[in-house]
């Protein structure tokens, strides 16, 4: 069975989606990623969707699920490289992908995650809720 590779880059995980996701593939990605976060203790997940031309509500839910699960495992998720046409369609569809951070490209996404991690580590005393932007 096809699988979507998950790359480890220090404390971050990078997933590049380059094929059209069908349901089972997307679900296995969800499972693999959660396992990987747990195993590596990653603090951030970058999902590169620059090659994805269609995001429907199913795909939207998978991305939302990944973000929510990662959050519970103490990792932030950033979606990078969304195509303009996809963004316009998602807004029209009424799917705001709430709870997911986005960045223009992988580089900016890594910057965003790093600044979040540094912020969190600075507030070791606790009261950081992570979602404040």
């Amino acid at each position: 069975m096809e699988k979507i590779p998950i790359l480890r880059m220090g404390r971050l995980l990078l997933v590049t989606i380059q094929v059209d996701l069908y349901d089972r593939l997307a679900e296995s990605l969800e499972a693999d990623l959660v396992q990987m976060i747990n195993k590596t203790g990653a603090r951030g997940v970058l999902i590169d969707i620059s090659a994805v031309s269609i995001i429907d509500s199913f795909m939207g839910r998978i991305i939302g699920n990944i973000a929510a699960m990662s959050k519970i495992l103490d990792a932030e998720t950033v979606v990078v490289g969304m195509q303009p046409a996809v963004a316009i369609t998602l807004v029209e569809l009424g799917l705001p992908l709430s709870g997911v951070f986005s960045a223009l490209n992988v580089e900016k996404g890594m910057e965003l995650l790093r600044s979040k991690l540094t912020n969190m580590e600075r507030n070791v005393d606790g009261s950081d809720d992570g979602s404040a932007e």
């Binding site: 031309s53 269609i54 995001i55 429907d56 509500s57 199913f58 195509q83 303009p84 046409a85 996809v86 316009i88 369609t89 029209e92 569809l93």
Partner: peptide, 17 residues
């Protein structure tokens, strides 16, 4: 155009699902 393509394909995907 690309945006309208994306819209109709996404809609079709929703309906097929």
């Amino acid at each position: 155009g690309l945006v309208n393509q994306t819209k109709i394909i996404t809609a079709a995907s929703e309906l097929a699902r």
